[in-house]
Design a binder for these strands. Structure first.
Length: 271
DNA sequence: CGAGCAACCTGCATGC
DNA sequence: TGCATGCAGGTTGCTC
């Protein structure tokens, strides 16, 4: 599912439709997600104006004066704007109904997503409290990653996918960024040079920004708030391309497992 | 600290 | 056609 570009695509898609509107009702059809949708969500949100649609890592934040809805799309979640009267499908968990007869509809077949509510500043919530910097922000840079990784034996791919170190980089973009930077995904994080970290940060920004510009990556079921897929899949160099020739040197892309996740890399270009 | 795995779920592709 | 298997964009939390 969604990594940062898909979540940001979703945020940009829904913000103009829900920002400034008033919630008239919240319909929870199926509260079972990663954690149950809180019973009090409807009472807390109804009547509130949505002041802002923010994002922290892969979490979407719907801010109101009374509190903030914290929304995560998990592996298979998507948000769409629908006419409030549109019949719900099988995996449509929640509708946040607005004062213009439209609704923000959360669909999540695999139920790895979440919809929570907090009255406190969301950055204090336990899910957000310990998150690392935003990859597109200025406090994410080569010096930061280099300093953080000294002495660490963990594989660089795990290191950049760990949200304590930096948020928003999932399996697709981790593979792509390491390919672009010429770093082997299994290399120990503590054995990557400052120069390579500078380059890695640069290509992470590039790949995320390019993916956002194309509406994210649709492998199977990601759709934006209009129900349309993202087109960054066409730009992928290594992810899902085991056996295909490297676009740079023609060596077949190798597929390995790191943990339980697939990694793809060029054995000639990445060290 | 780090490696590994189990958990939370459904859907789809593949192979027999 | 049916059934079993394995895999998928994420994250938490446990054990060793």
């Amino acid at each position: 599912m969604p990594e940062l570009p898909e979540v940001e695509t979703t945020r940009r898609g829904i913000a103009p439709h829900i920002g400034g509107r008033t919630v008239t009702r919240v319909v929870v059809r199926e509260p079972r997600l990663r954690w149950p949708v809180p019973r009090r969500l409807s009472a807390e949100m109804t009547g509130q104006d949505i002041d802002a649609v923010g994002r922290r890592g892969k979490y979407l934040l719907l801010a109101t004066d009374a509190g903030t809805a914290i929304l995560h799309l998990g592996m298979s979640g998507s948000l769409r704007m629908v006419a409030a009267a549109t019949p719900a499908g099988k995996h449509d968990h929640v509708d946040i109904v607005l004062d213009n007869r439209k609704a923000l509809r959360l669909c999540d077949p695999r139920r790895f997503g979440a919809l929570l509510w907090t009255r406190r500043p969301p950055e204090q919530h336990r899910l957000l409290r310990d998150l690392g910097p935003e990859p597109l922000g200025s406090d994410f840079n080569g010096a930061y990653l280099h300093a953080l990784s000294r002495g660490r034996k963990v594989a660089i791919k795990h290191f950049i996918m760990n949200s304590h170190n930096v948020v928003g980089i999932g399996n697709i973009y981790a593979n792509e960024a390491l390919y672009m930077a010429g770093i082997h995904p299994g290399r120990a994080a503590g054995r990557v040079s400052k120069r390579k970290y500078d380059l890695l940060v640069e290509v992470i920004r590039e790949v995320l920004n390019d993916a956002i510009a194309l509406g994210g990556t649709t492998l199977r079921d990601f759709v934006n708030s209009d129900g349309k897929p993202g087109y960054f899949r066409l730009e992928l160099n290594v992810y899902g391309k085991g056996g295909h020739p490297c676009i740079s040197c023609r060596t077949p892309i190798r597929e390995i497992r790191q943990g339980q996740r697939a990694s793809f890399y060029c054995p000639e270009c990445q060290h």
